[in-house]
Design a protein around this nucleic acid. Structure first.
Lengths: 204, 204
DNA sequence: GACATTAGTAATCGTTTGATAACCTGTCAA
DNA sequence: TTGACAGGTTATCAAACGATTACTAATGTC
């Protein structure tokens, strides 16, 4: 009966909020906006479901927050890669910067989910705006032509699709899948597969 | 009180089934697997909700059916474009064939939704398989190199993203958006915008 | 014209889900 | 020491959703 009353850990609201947004990003990345429940997010963050809802008002506001943070991180990462000129061509620097974002679990996938929800009045509007922001970065800040930017974005969308499909799971077993992945991630496949492994453990 | 009892129209089961699959494709394309309700599909097809469910067993089975039909139509369209050599380069023929699929409302978007649901044991598995099928077509039947196939698929995924974002809605108002769309659909923008108009009326 | 089959609907049910309300409890300043 | 605020929780709810059951009305056939 010696109730060793271990003190319940408490975080500052700001830190907890960050943690919830990160957890939400991961879960939204797996199941999308509609497929994710606030309870899943709460359990991933180690808090109660009502707390998650109250923290952001609604599930939709939380998703928009996730979307906005993802765009900030993406553009920040690109700007750093742009400034940090190590002699390699720009396309490659940005490309590596992009796959580096896989470390933020669910970030690129949450973006991708948002990108196919254009008919939603709130999420769709923000997603369009975000995509245009990225395009404008490539055109003005990175100095790409519209064709170059288009090719770069196309590669990004294909990457997202491969990640979304969990195609890296088939990399070792299926030779066709392996070849496809080689074509999708020229010179960076090892990185992607390794980072992709982080994605494994997530029981619904 | 002369009840002009107009006979309620009835369809053959097969035709009704096709109609429901088409309606489901459209709605799934807008809201994704989780975001779509069987009742939305039922109303779109003009039948009752229980009928939709009983026809396919479960919502998941209906989605898989939609996914499989989409892949059949996609590959069929590609094969026709491949066989029908009008002198234009293959990439362009396949590209036009691809945007032609926009006439099937929701088809490409349902595929896209499936492609980003790779963590789902049923849908994900079928989606991976389907994507590989397309890649294999490009490599073996269409005779592309892995690099060519990768570039082609990348363009396709970018197209899907533009459609999913409803970026064509901003085409006329935002000059940046217009430039982006020009870069995404070289020489086929008019077609896309026109077909995109079909996508307008869909109150939730 | 009976009658079986086919093409549906109406009613309803158990869960799940996002959200609300009410309460609890460390922490810290005065 | 007290009291107030910050950081949570438990209990609960109404609505929405997928699914099941039982029923009904057209259609084709002998």
């Amino acid at each position: 009966m010696t109730e060793t009353d271990v003190p319940i850990p408490r975080m500052k609201a700001h830190d907890r909020r960050e943690l919830v947004i990160e957890s939400a990003t991961a879960v939204f990345g797996d199941y999308g906006y509609y497929g994710t429940t606030t309870d899943q997010i709460a359990r991933a963050a180690g808090v109660s479901q009502p707390y998650v809802v109250r923290m952001f008002g609604t599930k939709e506001k939380l998703f928009v927050e996730v979307l906005e943070r993802a765009l900030v991180l993406l553009l920040g990462s690109f700007r750093r890669a742009l400034a940090n000129d190590d002699g390699q061509p720009l396309q490659r620097r940005l490309g590596l910067s992009y796959v580096g974002l896989l470390e933020h679990r669910g970030l690129l996938l949450s973006l991708m989910h948002a990108f196919v929800l254009g008919s939603d009045p709130v999420i769709g509007e923000r997603a369009r705006q975000g995509f245009l922001q990225v395009y404008e970065f490539l055109r003005t800040e990175a100095g790409m032509t519209s064709t170059e930017a288009g090719l770069f974005l196309a590669g990004g969308m294909l990457s997202n699709t491969m990640i979304g499909l969990r195609m890296t799971d088939m990399d070792s077993s299926d030779p066709i899948a392996h070849e496809l992945l080689e074509a999708c991630f020229p010179e960076k496949l090892e990185v992607v597969v390794e980072l992709g492994d982080t994605y494994r453990p997530d029981p619904k």
